[in-house]
Design a protein around this nucleic acid. Sequence first.
DNA 1: CGCCAAGGTTGACACCGTCAGGTTAACGGT
DNA 2: ACCGTTAACCTGACGGTGTCAACCTTGGCG
Lengths: 219, 219
Amino acid sequence: MLREELLRAADDLLAESGTEDALTIRAVAARAGVSTPAVYMHFADKEALVEAVCMRVWGELQRIFSQSREGDPFLALGGCARAYMRFALDHPVQYRVLMMRPSAAQAVPPAAAAEAFGYMVDAVEACMRTGVFEGDATEIALGLWSALHGSVALVLAQPSLPWPEHEALIDRAVRVAGFGTVLYSRLPGELPPSEDLAAHADAFGAALTTRPERDQPSP
Amino acid sequence: MLREELLRAADDLLAESGTEDALTIRAVAARAGVSTPAVYMHFADKEALVEAVCMRVWGELQRIFSQSREGDPFLALGGCARAYMRFALDHPVQYRVLMMRPSAAQAVPPAAAAEAFGYMVDAVEACMRTGVFEGDATEIALGLWSALHGSVALVLAQPSLPWPEHEALIDRAVRVAGFGTVLYSRLPGELPPSEDLAAHADAFGAALTTRPERDQPSP
DNA sequence: CGCCAAGGTTGACACCGTCAGGTTAACGGT
DNA sequence: ACCGTTAACCTGACGGTGTCAACCTTGGCG
């Protein structure tokens, strides 16, 4: 099928050129060994092609998410978060097309995106079932996603700032987001008893922190 | 000066069209009542023009930041954060040009951006001088900025998701970022005594929460 | 065999960023 | 007062882009 060939060509162009404006209809067609308007046999316009490319990326993210289904729900959620950031930092061009292309704004809800996001909502719900924190799972997942996206997007947008290296950045973002989320979930309006607050932040943050060997207590 | 006229025209185009790809050299020139290549008398290329537009936006942000210099350093930092998000949500096109245009990535460190960011670092340092939390001010400010950017950027990129309205979103992002930051700052490796942790999160988060009337304690 | 639709091609249009070359107007030195 | 220099601007053009109308081409079917 030519359609698949075109999508592969688009993927390759993105990966090889390192910039999203190498993704032109003409270049895709040429790479697939076909004339330019042939692309319009399979895609309504350029936006449709780009959207199809994004579907693949979302699918890959979805696959990555589904792989980090470990036993502990907090470890699973932390794994999702880390995998997400790693993917974005490892595939900056794809991530930029996914999230920063101008037309992504008023796009109809992309099914693949919603599906991938659903994985995160599920992971959040699994955590909530343990009773460690509570609230609206979708809202919490949105907040987490925002935090992860913020770190990687800002790194991609302003790489000249004094960033830590990738793994440290990921660690920091996941932990800050985890701590903040659990505390916020525990105090929508006023503050709960301090020891509750600390205990919950403890459990959530420590689990999100992922290091299984980190339970030697403070002296 | 024609240069100023061109920048004003570019600003107007962005504001009126509501999309960044209305910002073409030809449109800017036409709006300024001048021929297209006249733009090249004042800007080396389109990127230079866009960068100049961004300088103005950064300047405006800087002005907004400097206005929220309240007495309490936490209130000031919270004010900065809220003002930042409000600006981004109120001027989505400008914010998108600032942070999501493809060429923003490898741009030389934009002085105006660094200066505006400096305000946030200063605000963080002021907070740190109170002893409520500690760490590297630049790193913490970067983390805060990431959190703020993440929320607004994700809203702009995926507006079809079930977002809360703007003020609620701002509230949530600022509080989550604040809580997360102070907790993370208190536990780089292992956990401190719980009551310390809670107390600090308390102070920081509550202050960032901005509501001055919120000090009726829990019963 | 003859037909016909799906899928491809050629050629063109409008728009974009950019540049070479010509025109104009202001200004300073003699 | 005149002329040369120079900066600012314009006309016209080039290559590249997304897109479309019109024309083939080819394989399957009555």
